[in-house]
Design a protein around this nucleic acid. Structure first.
Lengths: 349, 349
DNA sequence: GGTCGTAACTTGACCGGTTACTATGATAAA
DNA sequence: TTTATCATAGTAACCGGTCAAGTTACGACC
């Protein structure tokens, strides 16, 4: 296999005795060039095995036709399905995606965003890490006039658009379902309060409790991360406190799984001894026993909306108005968060 | 927010009254430039908020420092965890990753590879789709002298390196475990035979059966895809045939899940009525009831090996020797594929 | 004093496209 | 016949870097 330098526009031009501009225009279907010439150019390009050089194209046209994406995790249903929808929507709109994964690490997130800037992506979609606090890197993106859209996990930075889930409303729905099923001793294993999804889900929980005149026991409100281990630890903390709630509202699906694991370990039965509901789901939920009742987040809608939003902003050369899109949630009833058995009689509610 | 054109090397150069080459070299830590000048350049670069332009860099240096990756799926544990390890290893070696997802669609796969070529990625890692048959696009990659490494799912194309799993050996281990547990009526819900993982797992199955003098019933060997639905259909096909095996060897984890779903639907209990083992796992396996006993594929090893291999090939300017790496599997025992309880019951079935 | 080596820069070309103008011949309008 | 217009194509500059090959100043060495 001998080194075959890449075919360029000039190679095609030489072959046809035209200028490279003609070739460039022909390949892009520019009306300047006649049907016949265009046909010839395309034919020769094919024969020679021409492959455009994106670096050259991006450099001279000052756009990359690429949207940068930064997500905290990839091996989780929520994000991987969002990513699939982002790819689909970008593909449909003829954009490329530059995907990066921060692994819930703020420093890595910053590096990735710098790389995306260096790639001169036309826009950026970010779902921040659990630990992201510093907004300077995002302000830098904005100051460069690069459209920035936060998705699901957002940071308050002026001028950015957001696509979020109705976390507060979803949490209220979840708690009200629990209450309507006769539960009063309700705990919440939540995420960090510093991040919107943690904060809003907690607030929805608190709001619903208050509205129904139920006390919120501080020992029954745990704040931590969004992973399985956080759920495990959260449960154990509550368990060891000695007083058990009847019901847990978990901030994410992995957290709920952590609760399952911990409960199994200490012999607490779900849903008999402890019932549960959570935010988000996974493709395997139907195989879980008991399958979790959950607040569904429409991942496809989220991804599509985020892409559409950046593209819209890319179109607007001048000062665009940031948009805040909030997509509604839906309760999906499965095997948990069912009518409380011992309280069936007292279900005069 | 007013349009602020990007800061370039020349901007920094002007400010310091040096040439842009000096700036370029300084930023790269080239020994040509004095400590003092380098310090100054970096300081001004920082002040001005310089961000390199990768397109320009790639164009003039003729390399992108990027590895292209094409996978068929992303929302599945196997691939998403491989991808995480690919990112980690690339990050460690200072390479960027351009990730694309073919969605098991050969045409899309081809398009993605063309995009990667246009990006002039330094190397490509591919896990082909279920339906990929045509190898011309891959030959095109090779003819361009771009290192190509197939990962897990491979196509036989001369000159490519491969990182695969010991599918055949893993299948043999799985079947022998079943046999040692007393099973003789063993079915296989397999993948397409045209693709290595489907072919080799099937062959391992057949080899083990033959070795132990067990018959392979053609009705008990199903070939299809690698998804949950394929498992569901596969089970139903066997179930409707009227004669049930005691044991199923599923080609992938999702296929096994499909079997779970189908079995539950028709009231076949796992593992009592029908026992099962599969290739691959998922993070939620421990929550599955019964948790699947499986042939573990070391995803982190796969991803890392693939990246190391491309990088190695990128290093070698001249004709490199393709390498075939096969990583071993391991049996992980959980709740299925356990000792057969009663040969009488099973036989009476 | 002349030659050489070296540290520290600079010059100019080039990577492979795109873009804004310019040029040419043919045809239509005046 | 002259001028305006249009369809087609060409020219030259530029995008923001990198690379190879100079250039300059200065001390060392014989």
């Amino acid at each position: 296999m001998n080194r075959k330098p890449h075919v360029t526009l000039s190679d095609i031009a030489k072959q046809l005795n035209v200028s490279k501009v003609t070739v460039s225009k022909a390949l892009r279907g520019h009306p300047d060039i006649s049907r016949e010439t265009t046909r010839l150019v395309k034919k020769v390009a094919e024969e020679l095995g021409y492959t455009p050089n994106f670096a050259a194209r991006n450099l001279s046209s000052r756009k990359s036709n690429t949207i940068g994406v930064v997500v905290p995790k990839i091996a989780h249903f929520f994000f991987s399905s969002i990513i699939e929808s982002i790819y689909d929507e970008a593909f449909y709109n003829n954009y490329d995606i530059a995907l990066t994964v921060s692994q819930e690490n703020a420093e890595r997130e910053k590096k990735h965003i710098e790389t995306l800037m260096a790639m001169r992506v036309d826009g950026v979609i970010v779902s921040i890490t659990q630990e992201t606090k510093d907004s300077t890197i995002f302000e830098k993106v904005l100051s460069r006039n690069v459209p920035l859209v936060f998705m699901d996990r957002v940071l308050q930075v002026g001028g950015t658009s957001q696509v979020t889930v109705d976390d507060r409303g979803g949490a209220v729905k979840a708690i009200e379902l629990a209450i309507s099923n006769g539960y009063t001793k309700i705990a919440h294993i939540g995420g960090y309060k510093e991040i919107n999804i943690g904060k809003n889900r907690y607030e929805g929980f608190a709001e619903a409790m208050k509205k129904h005149g139920l006390p919120v026991d501080p020992d029954w409100v745990i704040h931590g991360g969004f992973g399985e281990d956080d759920g495990y630890q959260g449960f154990m903390k509550i368990y060891k406190s000695g007083k058990m709630p009847e019901f847990i509202f978990a901030v994410t699906y992995p957290v709920a799984l952590g609760v399952y694991a911990a409960a199994a370990e200490v012999g607490v039965r779900i849903p008999e001894d402890l019932d549960i509901i959570c935010f988000g789901s996974a493709s395997i939920n139907k195989f879980l026993k008991p399958a979790l009742t959950y607040v569904d987040q429409p991942t496809r809608t989220l991804g599509k909306a985020a892409v559409d939003l950046v593209i819209e902003h890319i179109g607007e050369t001048e000062n665009y108005q940031p948009k805040l899109i909030e997509v509604p949630t839906e309760l999906v009833i499965r095997d948990t968060c069912i009518k409380k058995k011992s309280a069936v009689n007292a279900a005069a509610k």
